[in-house]
Nucleic acid binder design. Sequence first.
DNA 1: GGCTAATCGAGACGGTACGTCTGGTCTTGCG
DNA 2: CGCAAGACCAGACGTACCGTCTCGATTAGCC
Lengths: 189, 189, 189, 189
Amino acid sequence: MPRPRSEAARQSVLEAMRAAVMAGTYESVTIEGLAESAGVSKQTIYRWWPSKAAILGEALLEGDLPGADVSVPMSDDIRADLHAWFTAMSTGLARPEGVALARALIAVTATDHELGRALNERLAQPIRSWVAERIARGQVDEQVRPDVDAGAIADQLIAMASYAALIGQPLSAERVEETVTRLLRGIAR
Amino acid sequence: MPRPRSEAARQSVLEAMRAAVMAGTYESVTIEGLAESAGVSKQTIYRWWPSKAAILGEALLEGDLPGADVSVPMSDDIRADLHAWFTAMSTGLARPEGVALARALIAVTATDHELGRALNERLAQPIRSWVAERIARGQVDEQVRPDVDAGAIADQLIAMASYAALIGQPLSAERVEETVTRLLRGIAR
Amino acid sequence: MPRPRSEAARQSVLEAMRAAVMAGTYESVTIEGLAESAGVSKQTIYRWWPSKAAILGEALLEGDLPGADVSVPMSDDIRADLHAWFTAMSTGLARPEGVALARALIAVTATDHELGRALNERLAQPIRSWVAERIARGQVDEQVRPDVDAGAIADQLIAMASYAALIGQPLSAERVEETVTRLLRGIAR
Amino acid sequence: MPRPRSEAARQSVLEAMRAAVMAGTYESVTIEGLAESAGVSKQTIYRWWPSKAAILGEALLEGDLPGADVSVPMSDDIRADLHAWFTAMSTGLARPEGVALARALIAVTATDHELGRALNERLAQPIRSWVAERIARGQVDEQVRPDVDAGAIADQLIAMASYAALIGQPLSAERVEETVTRLLRGIAR
DNA sequence: GGCTAATCGAGACGGTACGTCTGGTCTTGCG
DNA sequence: CGCAAGACCAGACGTACCGTCTCGATTAGCC
């Protein structure tokens, strides 16, 4: 007999959170503003989520993730592929939404380590998959040593691009070039 | 002609800021609390600094920097040296003060890009120097290719260690090991 | 539908204002102190009252009024009655609470004329009534001319006692005596 | 040998105080603003005056007193003279400067009783003199009883006009008329 | 004509209160 | 019972003055 939780309200809040965090800083998002723009009362938010971080977590975990959705077609040229892909991720993360996303991730992690870990996992997943696939291909082609850890490489590139975006100094084309060159030299057979 | 600015008050505020930011989050630092713990009136703070970010910037630029003061002796074994040094930086940054410092850097950058850039420069400087020196030594020893960019390597390692610390997942010993191995393979002659 | 205004908070603030204004000067009353001693947040005060004067106005209009609650029994001797009553009012107003009340009235009037007028009306009312009644009795006894304006007499005595209290020079017994004598001579049949 | 106190600064401050108190409320006058508009440093003010009240006191005691400088020619008609004079004082005090003056007197008295008393004396003096002279003339003319106390009458009229001005309800022409009539009946031979 | 001691301007300083804003909790009544 | 509306306590925000405190820079007499 009790009235069930309003899915419309829930979606509305999550969507408002996504919009707000992309528009400003994570810290600049207020529960009050969220309620306002979601057309929902504050209490409804406080009833269902324990913290701002939790809302953002839920929003990111089930929403479309702008900024890190890098997907580059693969060719036979591993150098060209990695270069294209790292460039795409790097510039993608340097865009305002990318920066906002990265900063929000940091902020959430400050509040809730576990959630931060999960979010990072979720966000890095497609990237790791792509890298893993390309590296695997390289190994099949006998261009890449069989013992390289694709995950480590993905994490390195994510860290580099993210950190550069966070401190507002996107990687230059030369730096990207140099990084890919050196990377390949390190993993080449 | 008027009474000159009190250097004691200035130092007191900067010191209070350093302590506060190491103790909590940058966002959790309030001007009011700062004034209180510095034994200074709010107005004195507002008279001399335009923003919280500016205070932190000044505090970091001229204070002792906890967490990033990595200095490791050099031997003839470049692998051992890089490994020891990367381990030290990585664990140093993973310590609470290191994380606080990195987060504060991000927060300041969000408010004031230019200041963020300057701070990053200041913090990365000793690290870059160390790496540059070790790489140069390696080149003299003919272990390292003459064309490698020491700055790029330093930035890569800083980014990796910082990002890992920020998202609360410090680099594992294996990951450090793997990274150094791969790095050396990429720069070896 | 929202939560209704808390009557408890309202009363608490008004009571705190009455106490504060009697204890010190109107100017010495601070909103912050009021909130504190009323156990109410500043915002609650600012939400409901536009100014300190408005709070005092409301407090005086509906509270017990110390200092001006002069009520003297009537006998057949109009001179004795007027003398007793004027003495009572005069000394009542010269007491700290009376002075505080009068000063507060002036201060409120300086801020909000209309409110000041209303308060003055309210405070003078019982006095006017008493005088009107006694004068009417005198007219019935054929001791007082039928054309005298009781309101004018009340106002004169209020002004004299109030002004004397305000400038810190309470009326002497002789002055009271002289005033009543002269007054009676002016209104006697 | 030391440099003597600057009379120019002193006059400048007193003049600024007179202007400020006539322009606004006594409470609205700030030492800082006074210093500013007098072209004097705060310290110079604090060096020579113990309080705002003291400055105002000095300013009023030796300056021209706007608002209470009532001076009406005397004729042979005591009723006409008193009426003209009471009307003049009443309307004079009801003018903004008069109200400001009266309110300032109250405020000063709240801080410093003795000073308030002195100021009141000073301000009432010309009024008392005028009344005393007119009453004396009336006694010579055998229109006024020989035992009336001119000071009491002056004080009564001052109190009535001042209080009315203070509470923002100037005496009406009818009230003035009524008061003079009744007064004369009380003092007539 | 230099010496010297208090005055003067300027304004920094530790404070207190201002009136505003937002955060997170609570309390209503409608649906 | 969910929800919107919004009152409530809490406390930080940045501003305005307070009264005290240095600072040089004058500016008289007195030597």
